[in-house]
Design a protein around this nucleic acid. Structure first.
Lengths: 231, 231
DNA sequence: CATGGACAACTGCTATAGCAGCTGGCAGGG
DNA sequence: CCCTGCCAGCTGCTATAGCAGTTGTCCATG
């Protein structure tokens, strides 16, 4: 009975999501937040009654996490949390930069006019939030900006992959300091330039700018080291 | 009993893989090969006894396919095969090109010497296979080349994502003609140049060349149209 | 004829039970 | 003391049963 030692709390009935989905997010957050440390073993049964649910949803979540590269399970042996060191985190950041770049390129080609208008509204909000140094609102707007852009591509694979990568990004943000203090004007200029490329329907330009934006953001957050990364 | 109409044959005991894994691959192949057409509904139970197995492995496979963007399920409503038109296929190709590019960049930094030697061996084999016009051996070598390169990155997320994307690639290859007839020398030159960039430990160069290689390959296969794609 | 409501037949989702394989320790023979 | 084989206790994995929503049909009612 080592179930008591498992650093996970039972699932509340928070929302209307399926137990499998909730277990997935819970475990994912547990991994990126470090409460489930790399190398630690996760038993389907133990984790199940630690969460107060059955074993299937847990197993389902573990299979999805395995596809995300967060855990690795040896058949009939056990499931362990994968190692996510700083270098691995940097890799994932570069991957995310590349994918967001492709998303921007696709969006530049397909994006509807109303979505562009919505992005323009968001950027406008960013400008005021930057002036007011409202980091919280800025984070919210930033998330919406990327979400709309990715959603505009209509590509499920892209959206799902970036969603998974975003979880890792939170991990990087936790290990480094909190949110970025004084690069907000820089981020604002980058968003403006990205929007301009989107409006101009220039895929290559949008991709380059988006990629640079993500890489720069990761660099100032300490996830990436040298400023000469990935071109 | 509409189970008889489901275009899937029962699972043989082919290998030692789990039923969930086998169902995942079977369904994935069924989708990319067109036997499970877009828009068609997939019932867990029906598919289960069509495959001669229980419902859980099928459900498990469906959840993974959903994360790949191949199916979309409405809670308590049903699961349907997602639409994968030519334009979506082109998008996925560009995504794959970007990811393989990042993989090449990472490999250029981290790759061990013995892996480089193995790649050199493979490229040497490609040279003779190209001279002999042995398309089958060439496809095999090509697969090994990319597999070793991706494996050298040691990044699970990258490997898993590219594995899923490769399935879509097969779909594109099916819709277009068969394997490439006369661009083999071009592919050989590209592999040689990629290997050179890897040996030189030049991440940016390796990435650019790999990305160009994949995009060019997709273009000659008819998956991509204009030669001015993605930079 | 139109309309509304109940019922049957689905669906995805969850829980329980039990299988087969692996591991580690403990006893018994060398 | 060391080695070997057994065995209990794990593990992931699969099957069965049943839950709870959704949908479509069919009959009764206005």
């Amino acid at each position: 009975m080592s179930a008591r030692a498992i650093p996970v709390e039972p699932l509340a009935e928070e929302e209307t999501l399926s137990l499998g989905e909730r277990a997935y997010r819970r475990l994912r957050d547990g991994i990126v937040q470090g409460t489930l440390r790399p190398g630690s073993r996760i038993s389907e049964r133990s984790m199940a009654n630690a969460l107060g649910i059955s074993a299937q949803p847990v197993r389902e979540a573990l299979r999805r996490l395995e596809q995300d590269g967060m855990v690795v399970t040896l058949p009939r042996r056990g499931t362990v949390v994968a190692e996510i060191g700083p270098e691995r985190l940097a890799e994932l950041g570069r991957i995310r930069a590349a994918l967001e770049g492709v998303a921007a390129a696709l969006a530049a080609e397909r994006m509807a006019g109303e979505d562009l208008a919505e992005l323009a509204r968001i950027v406008r909000g960013m400008r005021t939030a930057t002036a007011a140094a409202d980091t919280e609102a800025l984070a919210e707007l930033n998330e919406r900006f990327h979400a709309i852009l990715q959603g505009a591509t209509g590509n499920l694979f892209l959206v799902k992959s970036l969603e998974a990568l975003r979880a890792y990004d939170d991990l990087g943000r936790l290990r480094a300091l909190g949110s970025t203090p004084k690069d907000m004007p820089k981020a604002l200029r980058e968003h403006v330039s990205i929007l301009a490329a989107l409006k101009a329907r220039d895929p290559a330009l949008a991709e380059a700018r988006m990629r640079h934006h993500v890489l720069r953001s990761l660099t100032t957050n300490g996830v990436l080291a040298a400023p000469r990364q990935g071109r």
